[in-house]
Amino acid sequence: MSEEKSPNTMVSNDTELILKAQQGDMLAFEQLVYRYDRRVLSIAATYVNSAEDAKDIYQEVFLRVYRGLGKFELRSEFSTWLYRITTNVCLSHRSRRKRHAHSSLDSASEGEEESHGALPFASGVSSDQRAIETELSGHIEEALRTLSPREKLVFTLRHFEGYKLREIAGMLECSEGAVKKYLFTATRKMRKELKGVYG
C-alpha cells in the first residue's frame, strides 16, 4: 500500500488533475484514477465477491469516467460522481461467469496467494469447525442471492465495507430513509433464508 502513495501526491488536488485530463492529458487522468481506484475495486469486490467480476466492474467504471470526464462539471465533487458510477455499474452488472456462483471459497482463492490471509479462519481451528464454517458460508452466499441488487449492495456495503447509511445514500442517490428500508428488507430476507442455520 505504501508504495502507492508517492507518485500520487505530486499534484495538489482533483480539480487540477481533472482540468488537465479534460485537455487530453492521460497522465493526469491516470493519477486521478489511482487516487480512488482501490476503493472502487474494493466496493466491486465486496459486492460480487469474485476477483474477475470485480475487475470487470472496475474497468467499466473507469471507461465510463474516461468517456464522461469531458462533460464533467467541476461544480460537483469528483468522488461523488465516481462512486455513483460505481454503484450503477455494480447494480447493472451481470456476472460473465457462472463459476463464482457455486462457492464463495472458490472465488476467494481464485485471486492471489495473499488473499488467503484474508480468510477468517484462525490457524488453530479444527477441520470440523472449518467444515461447519464453510457450510455456513455457503448458506449465507445463497441467502445473499435472494436479495435484489439494491438490497444486496446496501447490505454488503454496510456489513463488509463499513459505510455509514448516509454515505450509501449519497452513492445510490436516494434518501437515507430509503437506504434504511433496503437494509431492513435485506436483513429480514437474510433471517428468513437462514432460519435455523446459524446461532
Binding site: D37, R38, A54
Partner: peptide, 24 residues
Amino acid sequence: KRLQVAVAALPRVSVTDSLLQEAR
C-alpha cells in the same frame, strides 16, 4: 447480533496490491 457475526465471517475476495495492479 448472531446474524451480524455470521455474515462478518463470510470470506470475501480481498483487494490485494496485485489484484489492483492487474485491474490497472
